[in-house]
Amino acid sequence: MDYKTSPFVDKIIEIKTSKHIPDEVINDNLMIIEEFLQNHIKCTPGPMSDCQQLIAGEEERLAYENGYIYIRFNHCAHWLHDNKYYLLTRNFLYANYNVLDFTQTFTDYLEEHKNLSNDEKKEIYGNSLALLKKNLENEKEWKGLYITGKFGVGKTYLLKCVANTYAFNNKTVVFLTANELIKVAKEVISKEDQSAYYQLEKKCLKADLLVLDDIGAESVSEWSRDEILFGILNHRMEYKKTTYFSSNKDLAALEKSYINKKALSNYVKDEQLKAARLVERIKALTKEVTIKGYNKRY
């Protein structure tokens, strides 16, 4: 059997190209593929009452893994319409807030600020909104942002909207402060039970998006800098995993804050190198932007 003689040849070529499936695998599984294409119903967003799937709410999809082609089921667009926060709750692997209490997305954020003129947006946000829009629209763009600004200008609020957007786009997310990450590590070590931290660390390593909020505000030690933060950020840099940060300090000030002030004089240069090594990972992971404005907390 040769897929090039199939009545579905155009769609098969599209599947083959998008999933990078070799010709021989396509031909070996041609009956499965043709049956899928003949019977497949693509749901469009709307209430479940409009769903035409054989199993309401479940849509077939063609999967290709480890050299094999499978038929699998996903929740369809109708099911997701009636369960609008499902992706949000499923894709947050860890968050230091209740995600169902904050469901705004980046689109909602732009809507909230639509009355600002272009000059006002440029004055407050610089190029940060344009960069965020580009990141969210282009899956190949993996570099995040290092967002700086004074207390209360809305850095965390903006990052929550961004994190929600990634989750709604079916990307896994971890959102926490740097201080909380270090605190969890300290607590489990003091209890001589490190399993809780290792679970959190694994999530930080593997998540499609990691947001480290308020970095540089935690108590700095050689251990937290070199064993905790560096390990996670180095891994994410090597595997090009999207990472965002917020901080009241720009990167130059952050680097200074990670130098252990108690180090003996003959170790100061070594401390400077270690601090620089950490910040270099952040630079490799992000583009630095600044948000201006007034303190919205009072």
Rank of each mutant, 00 (worst) to 15 (best):
N266W: 14
T44E: 14
S219F: 14
N27Q: 00
E35R: 15
S246F: 08
P22R: 04
D2S: 15
T286R: 08
I15P: 02
L158H: 10
R61T: 15
N83A: 08
H78F: 11
N74I: 06
K186M: 06
D108F: 11
E222H: 03
A77T: 01
Y70K: 12
N29H: 09
N135K: 10
R236Q: 13
K84N: 10
L209Y: 04
A178Q: 02
K4W: 04
L212E: 03
K283L: 13
E112I: 03
N98F: 09
L254P: 00
E34C: 07
G46Y: 11
T105K: 03
K19W: 07
G46D: 11
F102R: 09
K42I: 10
A95E: 07
K122F: 07
Y70R: 10
A185I: 00
F168W: 04
G231E: 09
L88E: 06
I55R: 11
F168S: 03
I13E: 14
L233Y: 02
K283Y: 07
R72C: 14
D193P: 02
V25R: 08
H75C: 06
K150N: 15
Q199V: 09
N29M: 06
L233E: 01
Q52Y: 09
K262L: 06
N66I: 05
L62F: 07
E139D: 10
A196K: 06
I147S: 01
L88C: 07
E24K: 14
S117E: 08
H75T: 05
E60T: 10
N115H: 08
